[in-house]
Structures are given as structure tokens and as C-alpha cells.
Design a protein around this nucleic acid. Structure first.
Lengths: 149, 149
DNA sequence: GTACATAATGCGATGCCTTCTCAATAGTGC
DNA sequence: GCACTATTGAGAAGGCATCGCATTATGTAC
């Protein structure tokens, strides 16, 4: 599990600082039930409710930073804005099946996908951060409905 | 290859119409070299240069519609806006490796991923439209640079 | 412990991609 | 050819995300 002290170490390596805001954000994601993901706005509201508000600018900046460090995954689901979740190795690592009509999102696991992703990145000399298989499809219920696309 | 007449048939099934604009957009994507993808804006400019301008509203509407029909793939690369390309089966089907620092995007093929995606969709009763493995990583050149994240 | 350099925060303004509204246009079936 | 209505085009509006800058505060050196 990625800890606050490993975050601190990694930040210091680059001459950056550990702030209470960064620590809080990391902890929120660590305590989130597996497979739950938050948008920047969700996180903003959640923190206000918890009585430790963090400005939206800071949230956006740190979500982006933590994604680029490989700590978080940036998900493009179907709602038109990004979602974030903690980035975990197998066997917690998972992927998403999305209905393009009702936006219903289902998780599924498949460890060989992560292996393939790692192999591809390695072959090209890339340092892997995240690897997501996103399936766009139409769910059974939407297939039955006559509603337009 | 998906043709104009199959587009027409599929539109008519739903009570929709084949317009010159839709025909033009489909043809542009069909004639694009494999692996090239366009943003809405790219397409808009391209059409103006070709002397058959189509309004941005219409472009956005039809790109979305054709993605939801499974004709186009909607790609989330790293530039902050969507890109589109024609959706092709194996062995043309491919995936993307993206450097989160310089946004360099590389394609790679792996037919077993499409098979897994199809199997997953089928198992859940979904009608598959598209399946993309997106790898976020840091390219060799950016690993060497000292530049911040 | 104190002081300093500068990274990070918060606020509001700004930007950009995308969607919406609505009158005008044009496919389709009869 | 006519009626019906899906579609288009133009501009306005919306929403997510980023930027600029004054203020705050972390980490380091003394």
C-alpha cells in the first residue's frame, strides 16, 4: 500500500513538499472502498462535509500530479468529466465496462491485461504508470429499449 | 468495410436520415490512413479546406452519434479533447500507449485484447461497440529529462 | 529555534471543448 | 408534389479545468 511517507519521500526527491492537503487527499483515496471513484467535484464536496475544505484549484492540481506520479488512475467514464481512484496492482487492478446509453459502469478483472500492458510499455522503454481496458458497449436493458441512441 | 449504404440502412432502421453531411464525414474517416485520428476541430478545418464546410454543431452531433453506433471510436488521448477514428476489427484494431509528460502517442496491436473485451461484453450480455487498452506511461526521453511532472 | 527561499494554496478570472436553442432547411414516405 | 419531422447552422450558453497572483507555509540551513 502506498503510504504518506512514501509520498513524502517521492515528493522530496523532486524538491517538492508534503502539505496537509496532499496528505488528506491521499488518505481519502486510500480509504475509499475498492472500485469507488471520485470526481474533483465529489472530492471537494466530501472534504467540505468532513470539515477540512480544500480549494478546487488545489484539488485539480493534486489529482493531476498524483496521476502523473502513478498514485492515482485517471478514469474517462461516460459522464463528461474525469474520475479518480487509487492505482493498485494485481489482484486489485481492474477495468471498466461502460454502457454508452445509460452510462452504467461495471468493473471487471483480468490480470493478463495488466501483464500485456506492462510488457508493451517495457518493450518500448516506457515507465508504466497505469493501464486500463475500457469497453464501450450497450447493456442488456438499453438493448431492449426503443429509445434513440 | 462499413459503407455508406450500410450507414443508410442502419439509420433508416431507427427512422433517421442519411444526409450529405453524414455521408461526407463517414467518407473522410474511411479514407484516413490507418491510425490517424481527428478531433472535431480538425475535421471542421479539413472540411472547410476541401470546400464542403459543415458546421461544428453538426460535426459534434454526428461524431457522437457514429461513436454510439460503433462506427467510430472515441479516443481520450492526452490533449484534453476527444479524437475520433474509424472502428475496425482485427487485424486493424489497435490500442494506444501515451506518455503523460510529452503526450507522445504510439499505437500497438494485440488481438487477444479485443478477444478478451468481446468475451467480457458477451458474458455480461452487452452488445460490444469498442474496446481500447490505454497505457499511461513515461517515455524514455521524458525519463531522462529532469523536468517536473 | 529562527530566518530564508520558494513551493503550494486559495480565490477569482479565464479559456476551451462541447452542448443547447431555435428558426430554417431538406430527406422520406405517401 | 405534399406533409411530416429529422437535421442543419449560427450563436448563445454551460461546464470542467486551468491560470495568475497575492498570501501562506514547508523544508533547509544556520
Amino acid at each position: 500500500m502506498y503510504t504518506v511517507s512514501s509520498l513524502k519521500a517521492e515528493l522530496h526527491e523532486r524538491g517538492w513538499r508534503l502539505t496537509p492537503q496532499r496528505e488528506t487527499i491521499l488518505q481519502i483515496f486510500q480509504n475509499l472502498p475498492t472500485g469507488e471513484h471520485l470526481s474533483a467535484e465529489d472530492l471537494h464536496v466530501l472534504l467540505q462535509q468532513d470539515g477540512e475544505p480544500i480549494s478546487l484549484s488545489t484539488i485539480y492540481r493534486n489529482l493531476k500530479m498524483m496521476s502523473r506520479m502513478g498514485i492515482l488512475r485517471e478514469l474517462e467514464l461516460a459522464e463528461g468529466h474525469k474520475h479518480y481512484e487509487i492505482n493498485q496492482p494485481a489482484p486489485y487492478h481492474h477495468h471498466h465496462l461502460i454502457c454508452v446509453r445509460c452510462n452504467k459502469t461495471t468493473e471487471f478483472k483480468n490480470d493478463s491485461i495488466l501483464k500485456m500492458g506492462a510488457k508493451t510499455a517495457q518493450k518500448e522503454g516506457y515507465h508504466l504508470l497505469d493501464c486500463q481496458l475500457t469497453i464501450h458497449a450497450i447493456c442488456p436493458s438499453c438493448q431492449r429499449s426503443i429509445l434513440p441512441i
